[in-house]
Design a protein around this nucleic acid. Structure first.
Lengths: 214, 214, 214, 214
DNA sequence: GATGAATGAGCCTTCATTCAT
DNA sequence: GATGAATGAAGGCTCATTCAT
């Protein structure tokens, strides 16, 4: 145990660098896309040498993946928290909207990177695409669960839950894309309201139909 | 005028080559994505030399753009035809759905390419993204017009028409993405119905509200 | 068969390039050793672009291996020819000497490269060394066979044939190394005589002992 | 003079470090070869920091050279001791064999490193090769002297003494290479006998010829 | 005009060396 | 003095683009 303090210091430093690098990379990937992004540029933006970056991330792809995993993990935690509250489906959906909007407003660089990458993987991923990251699949499952429950309760329209979840995801993205391209002026309540209304209309059955439970 | 026949022949030949190349490129871009696609592979698939490709398309980017322009033009024509019919907004929207589904079912390679590229440009394009193609902007405008009219008529919800148009676009894409990744089995009527219902719910005001015109 | 002429032309060109490149690489590897050799330098010496080199040899290692294989193949042919003559062991050994000396006098760049690489692989290769090329192993076997026969006949000393073959190989190399470092002045007969005497003394049993066949 | 004790301590420490580092480096160079060896790995094996290594050896090449110098010095001492005994040439040669075999059996890591490097520098060094180390040249001279005397006495064959010395060196190496690659099983007497016989045959004139002194 | 072989700029990655702590 | 994290120059390899035939 004697080495612990030194190791702790190293851990701490590495952790700080990880953040620096991930943030810089997020920005560069957001600005250029994966292929056009140069590791050199990331290193300059992070003010760290190539060697330091490669000491932490074995390759450009790993760096990219790490961002998706980090952000995916964070979003997954949020989705799990919502799920844990065991809200009725409509409230759960609303909570997801709030949580996602909050998250992306707080992480605009990742938002841009995410939007640039396309929703490609939010859609059922095409064969031949990689970056099939577990976390995002799990987020998708949690969303699909909300829809599954809502369908069973008769509050959501009868459709494939996965399909509804994907629709929900891209709606989110369009909303936020609009927000970015109109200068990030709108405020959170406005965004939540706007998306909330759309989602409500798109996925909830009118009260009149609901009585029939079918 | 003596050269006209010769020129015509050239034009014809070039035109045939263009098609060959565009189709091959579409397939390769669909399979690999823009960056991973090699011009060499396109040339092999098209059975045309690199020189011929570069004689017609000055660069890989131009080739990519040309596909978007060609397909954009075709879709724009369809959208214009729908617009020219001066249908009431709901019928117009329905017609757009049919027309888009038909088009993409008929051009699966472009569909895959389109989906892989992400909806990035379907969303309000992020600054720094190129491929700012006029045709797609025009399609977007025609869609937005339908929404504008529907909003004015009180049949569509009151929201920014551009926002609604973009939502409409990505809904299309999710539907088709699902179709591709589930093996392209569903038939046109099923797809049209499925998307029609979603769009109807998402954008049309219930009859009860409509009376008020507000 | 219509494409044959074009293919032939390509084959011919590729073949010429292969030679150019192999010769240039041989020189550079001879001057610098494998690791210090830069592909760039080889490309300049060959007056061919990097791309052309990599079109023919997939990697720097492949290029290196190709040289060893080419020269190994040539030497193997010579050794096989000697073997095919079914000479008595002493004469066979003498023939091998002549053949090797001739070959290396004719290929001084390969000789230098070969000597620089060290006899490392002429000795029983150390574990962890690669470049374990079949041809060289086969040459070694043919040499060992000569020794095996000579031992059976009682003309060579009783020792492990593989050990004797390796001794023979390095003796060759020392002779030629001396020749290189003393300015490549000595002529073939001088070299053959010099090595012949050494080899005779080292491996042949004196006639007096031979009578006993043991 | 006040600093002497402190300086002595430093000297002692540095000296210990030198040993550690040289041994570690020897092992790593033996396992990987010069270029593939990483200074990092040497530092880990030696359990000393990069800084400490570079404080003692200004560069990787210096470290490599230092090993050759250290081992060269030790072998040189042995060769000098043999020379000092003023033995008749044949006995001197025999003594050298014993001394070399003993030394390499005692330093197998250096043996492997030495063999891997190839006999390149044991042969008359090619122009363009560095590592032109004085000690090894001196060892070579001492060996050559033995041959020179033996030739003068008519016990050794008439050849260039330097050439004979180099032959002697590589014979040593082949013997030991065989020993390494066959699992280091044979014992010293076996090795000495084996090499002794070969050397005797290769370099000594038969008694019958010797009478003539020419 | 068409070809496709040839080009070479550019980028990811490694590792000998340095220097702040 | 010792450390080992940080540096960044260097080099293998790819592939969009060109141009001699």
């Amino acid at each position: 145990m004697r080495r612990t303090p030194r190791d702790e210091a190293r851990q701490a430093r590495t952790s700080v660098y990880r953040q620096h690098i991930l943030e810089a990379a997020e920005r560069v990937f957001a600005d250029r896309g994966f292929d056009a992004a140069k590791v050199q540029e990331i290193s300059q933006l992070a003010a760290l040498s190539m060697g330091t970056i490669y000491a932490i991330f074995p390759s450009k792809h790993d760096l990219h993946r790490a961002i998706l995993e980090l952000r995916g993990e964070e979003l997954l935690d949020l989705a799990r928290t919502v799920a844990a509250r065991r809200l009725p489906p409509r409230e759960a959906l609303r909570a997801l909207i709030e949580v996602y909007v909050d998250y992306f407003l707080a992480h605009p660089a990742f938002l841009r990177m995410h939007l640039r990458a396309g929703t490609s993987w939010a859609m059922s991923p095409l064969p031949g695409t990689d970056e099939q990251i577990e976390k995002w699949q799990e987020i998708h499952e949690l969303q699909a669960d909300v829809f599954r429950r809502g369908i069973a309760d008769g509050v959501f329209v009868k459709e494939d839950p996965g399909y509804l979840a994907r629709m929900f995801t891209v709606m989110d993205q369009v909303l936020l894309s609009d927000w970015v391209s109109s200068g990030m002026k709108a405020r959170r309540p406005e965004l939540v309201r706007r998306l909330g209304q759309l989602v409500e209309r798109a996925f909830c059955r009118p009260a009149s139909e609901r009585a029939h439970r079918n």
